[in-house]
């Protein structure tokens, strides 16, 4: 299988190597996004993610296909979590494998940057006294 595209409740970062490794791949590059404890010096209690799942999977598929067109990749993984996530928990993992490292490094950056721009997933920051939908307002 060339692509793994998923929206899940919990991300298991340990399984991504097996998903991306390939006899023709000398390079595997992975990005993991996790919950950070502070936003602008305010303590974050948790992040809550919601999605429009049918559309999110379609958009992720398009991004993976574009990456496969643009670079010579062997495998691509894009997986995002939904629900409430605590500090240090992984929320997104993307990765690619290729014969040499340049392609997978560049593709990995493209996968996460484009996911953040177009995939319908929303993040609410929960602080002690308030909650904020990230990027909603200027």
């Amino acid at each position: 299988m060339k692509k793994v595209i998923e929206i899940v409740d919990v991300i298991d970062t340990a399984k991504v190597y097996a998903e991306l490794s390939d006899a023709n791949s000398g390079g595997i590059c992975v990005f993991v996004g996790a919950v950070r404890e502070f936003t602008n010096n305010e303590e974050v209690v948790a992040l809550e993610f919601e999605t429009y799942k049918a559309m999110a999977l379609k958009e992720m598929e398009k991004i993976a296909d574009k990456a496969l067109e643009k670079w010579s990749l062997n495998k691509v993984v894009m997986r995002h979590a939904v629900g409430e996530k605590g500090v240090e928990e992984p929320v997104v993992i993307v990765g690619a494998s290729s014969a040499h490292r340049d392609a997978c490094f560049e593709a990995c950056r493209f996968l996460i940057d484009t996911l953040k721009e177009t995939v319908p997933i929303w993040k609410k920051e929960k602080f002690k006294n308030k909650t904020v939908w990230v990027s909603a307002h200027p």
Binding site: G33, F49, T51, Y52, M55, A56, H80, V91, V92, I112, L115, K116, E117, T118, V119, P120, I121, W122, K123, W133, V134, S135, A136
Partner: peptide, 10 residues
């Protein structure tokens, strides 16, 4: 039909 406010995944 769905309304899509600014996305903030990742």
């Amino acid at each position: 039909i769905a309304i899509i406010p600014p996305v903030s995944g990742g």
